[in-house]
Amino acid sequence: MQRQGSGGSAAIRFRAVGVVLLLAHLALVAWLTLRPRDVLWVNAANLEPLAGIKADLALGPVQAARRIGEGLLLLAPLGILLPMAGGRLAVSPWASLVRTVGAGAMISLGIELLQTGVPGRVVDVDSLLLNTMGVALAHLLVVPAGRARLRRRRRTRSAPRPGKERGPLLREDVPQGPTPTIPRVGIAP
């Protein structure tokens, strides 16, 4: 059964690539964030929003940019890969943003909660905020423009060319005929 609004085999390949890249990225994130660290001491858990970012800014601009950049970039690819794995072209940009950022926040929260059981790792609410902001920024910078480009490409491919016959029929162009009906079956004797 074909999903409404899907573009056939190209859309299926696009979604499949999205799922594979999403799983590869999540495996990399798990490897980076859930490995035990061999350290002599560990900072206390940071449950005060923006306290860690303020402390990073106090270290100097280079160190702050590195630490804040790491937090923003860790889950940023999810802002692109989650909609890609979903494979929808005709969707509200705001609904897509809310869905993607919500999923990114839940994944970040899951990572933070799993880190409580890993030696050398502690919970940091600022990483949750930075990871979620990275997902939102990546989504806003790439997804709406990418979807618009794919919709334009789809329209130009399916539109008839002047002076030429229409190209190959798309699945939604082929008449399907009436829906088959199944006759009622009576109760067996």
Results as ranks from 00 to 15, higher is better:
M1Q: 04
M1V: 13
M1P: 11
M1N: 05
Q2I: 05
Q2F: 11
Q2A: 13
Q2T: 09
Q2V: 08
R3D: 05
R3N: 04
Q4A: 13
Q4N: 12
G5W: 13
G5N: 06
G5L: 09
G7Q: 07
G7L: 12
G7S: 09
G8W: 01
G8A: 02
S9D: 11
S9N: 09
S9Q: 12
A10R: 12
A10C: 03
A10F: 15
A10M: 11
A10H: 09
A11G: 13
A11C: 06
I12E: 06
I12N: 05
I12C: 05
I12Q: 12
F14L: 10
R15N: 00
R15W: 04
R15Q: 12
R15Y: 02
G18L: 02
G18T: 04
G18A: 05
G18Y: 02
V19D: 00
V20I: 15
L21F: 15
L21G: 01
L21I: 08
L21Q: 05
L21E: 09
L21N: 06
L22T: 02
L23G: 15
L23F: 09
L23C: 14
A24Y: 01
H25W: 15
L26V: 00
L26M: 08
L26D: 01
A27W: 01
L28H: 03
L28C: 03
L28N: 04
V29A: 15
V29G: 07
V29W: 04
A30R: 02
A30P: 03
A30F: 06
A30W: 08
W31P: 00
W31T: 04
W31D: 06
W31G: 10
L32I: 03
L32V: 07
T33R: 02
L34E: 04
L34G: 09
L34I: 10
L34N: 08
R35Y: 01
R35W: 07
R35A: 13
R35K: 08
R35T: 14
R37M: 14
R37C: 00
D38M: 11
D38Q: 13
D38C: 03
D38G: 12
D38T: 14
